[in-house]
Design a binder for these strands. Sequence first.
DNA 1: CGTATCTTGTGAATGATTTCACAAGCTCGG
DNA 2: CCGAGCTTGTGAAATCATTCACAAGATACG
Lengths: 206, 206
Amino acid sequence: MKKISESAVRRLSLYLRFLQEADAAGTDTISSGELARRGGATSAQVRKDLSLFGSFGKRGTGYSVKELLREIRTILGLNRSWKVALVGAGKLGSALFSYRDFEARGFRICAVFDADPEKVGASWGGLTVRADEEMDRVLREEEIDIAIVAVPADAAQGVVDRVVRAGVRSILNFAPVRLRVPNQVILRNVDVTLELEGLSFGLNAR
Amino acid sequence: MKKISESAVRRLSLYLRFLQEADAAGTDTISSGELARRGGATSAQVRKDLSLFGSFGKRGTGYSVKELLREIRTILGLNRSWKVALVGAGKLGSALFSYRDFEARGFRICAVFDADPEKVGASWGGLTVRADEEMDRVLREEEIDIAIVAVPADAAQGVVDRVVRAGVRSILNFAPVRLRVPNQVILRNVDVTLELEGLSFGLNAR
DNA sequence: CGTATCTTGTGAATGATTTCACAAGCTCGG
DNA sequence: CCGAGCTTGTGAAATCATTCACAAGATACG
């Protein structure tokens, strides 16, 4: 299979979102131009992205909203539900946990961990915050697919090493550090400082 | 001046971080190879990025850590302090607010707003959460540079329109929607759902 | 049925970014 | 002062991503 660029995947996620909106609004078919307009891309870009995976449209009319929804969900692996563990029960962890939209999209938070004994034992919407020492075992037992890392920067690499050893294959990291992971582990970073600095650069360059 | 790609700016931010680490560790000079190793780039990439702004290195030895720190700070506009407003005092807003590392990097949160009367009036580390109605006026009066948008998706576009009208020139958006802003306004998005879906795609493609 | 009008899917062209490769500069040890 | 051993800065080449442009299929309607 061809190599798919990260930006193409991002755009697919966006298309999915627009399709959901269109579907909710009762739209039956949508053209690449319309999808593009909502997402700031060009219609050629939309068609190219989709053509990486097949031909889902009908000439003259466009794409069936429901069908394309289904296709993109399949492409992105969103037909199933993924088991997610949240490591770090601080403010950020709490904010992420309570953002229950993830659930609706198939990302089910099955376990929460924290190293701070003060936090351990707290009940979070049906889940109990567990001690750090339990993490390795629980990650394995529950066969967690995705670990969300929301711990302080200096703890992040240690957590990630353990998470990887416990067989977790993908990680979403919020700590402002560059993590080392083996090749087969998928890592994405959300780095707010980086984004702010990007804005600073833009403001400065005027 | 040449056009600088967003990815180049991202990497500069990373280099800055590594330089700070190196500086803290007492390192005096650093080579492009070393910078590259820490950030997963190539040494040629590092040199190319820096060469967009000048020649800061010395052949045979590399870069002076302190000098390069200074240069990159200047490039990114981090010598000054930027005035930031936080719109949305929910869990995410609270997490962002208490992440005081921003302060150290020159991003000073000067105002917090929320539309919920329950939240208005609360005291957050010296700041009082202000009512939505005050926002437009305060943004102008305080000459806010950056607005961080941490409101529900369906409120985000409305907030952004007002923020832009109040003269704010850059926005960091956490709501999972694609926002429309005028050309001259700089917009960055942090979209956790998108990142999770990216991981899902990666997991699925095995 | 025919023609005017859509829209897709996709090679080819263009544009952007990354990597290569190497001359030129600096340091150090003898 | 010389040569060995680094490392930078940067054109040129290679790779990757986006846009163009158009044939071909679908529809609508008189």
